[in-house]
Design a protein around this nucleic acid. Structure first.
Length: 568
RNA sequence: UGGGGCGUCGCCAAACGGUUAAGGCAGCGGCCUUUGGAGCCGCCAUCUGUAGGUUCGAAUCCUACCGCCCCAACCA
């Protein structure tokens, strides 16, 4: 890279990590890069991971001859399961990224890591500590006071070697001993106060089974795994910044095959959601949601089921950028990208969620016809379809007002509107039940307006979606709101996790009416229900009873006008 | 309180001492429209946490304050 192109790269406003990479390429420090996405298989991936994935894989994709590894950070058998490994791989792939042959597990390196631990002992830089967890904690000091050295810190290399070997051999119970680095109990960075490298866990590991009963800690395994894989740029979130001195210390002490560099960026926060695997797991375990893929969850699996396109997630991550300052992205920003992608891709269909019957008095009883409807005005290639029309149709209850305000240009007594792709109809009368509720609208239509245009050139202000009653398919439709009621949910709220949840996060429409073309929608298929929003067929649906999830509403200018007083 | 990170428009985020401080989201006007959708056009920081200083020139350098976040799991 020349001076000029470097300046150009700068002027393009690269984020600070891409700027560092560009610099490393420019100076010749690296000819290509290797990144890694290192999830722990103890839960499903969420929006925050999506940001990391887009960064790790996206960056590698941008630089010629570079790659990104998928490495499972499986150093804690107590919480990790194969189910999560499979889920994570599925989610990364769905997001649109490919690790090719570069699938790794920290557990693949257990033997090498053990040898390096032994090497540290030989150098006199690690020791076996017999203190209890409580003692270790008590001797750790505080943020303002230094810690105290372990009474076992002075053990001979031989004794340490012997003890560590016997730890591995399974001679000791859990919590009886740990291997610690010998650094500095007075360090102002707590992570450097003789950090624990290995602990005893008599637990089966999802991959190594019972081969091991000692497991390396993240702080030990991570930098060394990066080095083994020749990772050049090890990107992680800001909370690991304090661990970098230890990361670098280990890389310096040991004869590792490469010297990776850790760089930290700010984690993603989005309003009305939580990106903490721990709390998401509680929502699942405590039954607040139906599972990790409950469409209200911020997990990748849930967003997929809800109907968010992978592309929308990628573009969202792109748009929010990478920086080091704390951030709180408005949910509207995510929704914008979801709508933008869906507007371009989703086929249009008609569906009525809150039906009221409209009878066309002058339309011949028993007659029906097939009308042409455009599948996607944003994509001429999507073609057209036939929609059946008949004398009795369902329209949205909300599209009629008996005593409408000035700016309401939908249906009301005496008013003429267009039924999309069909005819102009005029409301002649309103039928009510004994309780005074509107049960039916009696209208007349103008046969000359077939298709939706008047030959005499007269205009109507409103266009309504509709479904022919005789041909309608009944479906269940699930309407989602935010899972949490506050912009910044407090999982520690007084009433428990449940108290932070929005009671209106799920509304089920038991019987919505769909146009027939929707009957055979396969799970995962996404549509725009005209004038209502984007919907995605859910796997819960059966052939005789489809189920749709509302992915997002359409922007609703009328709602805004009505709110501002236009509806008075 | 020890250490560290960060403070640019309501929310993100560029700007790397030198034109009127990019762009996106949100918002607000208008045009257009067989989705009150989409699209299009326009408006939206004389100002960069605060106060001083250096400089011909500062969001960018210096000093001091103020504020927010992270670190004391045998989690990652």
């Amino acid at each position: 890279m020349t001076e000029d192109s470097r300046a150009e790269a700068r002027s393009e406003g690269l984020d600070f990590i891409r700027a560092i990479v560009a610099e490393d390429l420019a100076t010749g420090k690296h000819a290509s890069i290797v990144t890694r996405f290192p999830p722990e298989p103890n839960g499903y991936l969420h929006l925050g991971h999506a940001k990391a994935i887009c960064l790790d894989f996206g960056l590698a994709r941008e630089i010629p001859n570079s790659r990104c590894h998928l490495r499972f950070d499986d150093t804690n058998p107590a919480t990790e399961e194969t189910e999560y490994v499979d889920g994570i791989m599925n989610d990364v792939r769905w997001l649109g990224f490919d690790w090719k042959k570069h699938l790794y597990y920290a557990s693949d390196y257990f033997e090498q890591l053990y040898e390096w631990a032994v090497a540290l002992i030989r150098m006199g830089k690690a020791f076996v500590d017999d203190q209890t967890p409580d003692e270790i904690r008590a001797n750790q000091g505080s943020l303002t006071e230094p810690g105290r050295e372990s009474p076992f810190r002075g053990r001979s290399v031989e004794e340490n070697l012997d003890l560590f070997a016997r730890m591995r051999a399974g001679e000791f119970p859990e919590e009886s001993r740990v291997l610690r680095a010998k650094i500095d109990m007075a360090a102002s960075v707590v992570a450097m106060r003789d950090p624990i490298l290995y602990r005893i866990q008599h637990k089966a590991h999802h991959r190594t089974g019972t081969t091991w009963c000692i497991y390396p800690m993240y702080d030990f395994a991570h930098p060394l795994s990066d080095a083994i894989e020749h990772v050049t740029h090890s990107l992680c979130t800001l909370e690991f910044l304090d661990h970098r001195p230890l990361y670098d210390w280990l890389i310096e002490q040991l004869p590792v095959p490469s010297r990776p560099r850790q760089i930290e960026f700010a984690r993603l926060n989005v309003t009305h959601t939580i990106t903490s695997k721990r709390f998401l797991k509680r929502l699942v375990d405590e039954g607040f949601v139906t599972g990790w893929d409950d469409p209200r969850m911020p997990t990748i699996a849930a967003m997929r089921r809800r109907g968010y396109p992978a592309r929308a997630l990628r573009e969202f991550c792109d748009a929010i950028g990478i920086a080091k300052r704390d951030n709180l992205i408005e949910l509207a920003n995510l929704e914008f990208h979801v709508r933008q992608a869906l507007n371009q891709e989703a086929l249009r269909r008609m569906a009525v969620l809150d039906p009221i019957k409209l009878v066309i008095e002058n339309y011949p009883e028993g007659q029906e016809e097939s009308l042409d409807a455009i599948n996607n005005p944003e994509d001429p290639g999507a073609g057209t379809r036939k929609v059946p029309f008949s004398r009795e149709i369902w329209i949205e209850r909300e599209d009629f007002m008996e005593d409408p305000p000035k700016k309401f240009f939908r249906l009301s007594p005496g008013k003429e509107v267009r039924l999309r792709y069909a005819y102009f109809v005029t409301c002649q009368s309103v039928v009510k039940n004994a309780e005074g509720e509107i049960v039916e609208l009696r209208c007349t239509y103008d046969p000359a307006t077939r298709g939706g245009d008047a030959p005499d050139g007269r205009k109507v202000k409103g266009t309504l979606h509709w479904v022919s009653a005789r041909h309608a398919v009944a479906a269940e439709v699930r309407l989602y709101g935010t899972l949490f009621k506050d912009e910044v949910p407090d999982p520690h709220a007084p009433g428990g996790l449940g108290a932070a949840l929005d009671p209106d996060s799920l509304r089920v429409v038991e019987r919505a009416w769909l146009e027939p073309a929707l009957a055979e929608a396969a799970p995962g298929e996404r549509f725009q229900f005209e004038r209502l929003g984007y919907f995605c067929a859910d796997p819960d649906g059966r052939p005789d009873r489809p189920v749709f999830n509302r992915t997002a509403t359409l922007r609703d200018t009328w709602a805004k006008v009505a709110k501002q007083g236009g509806a008075e």
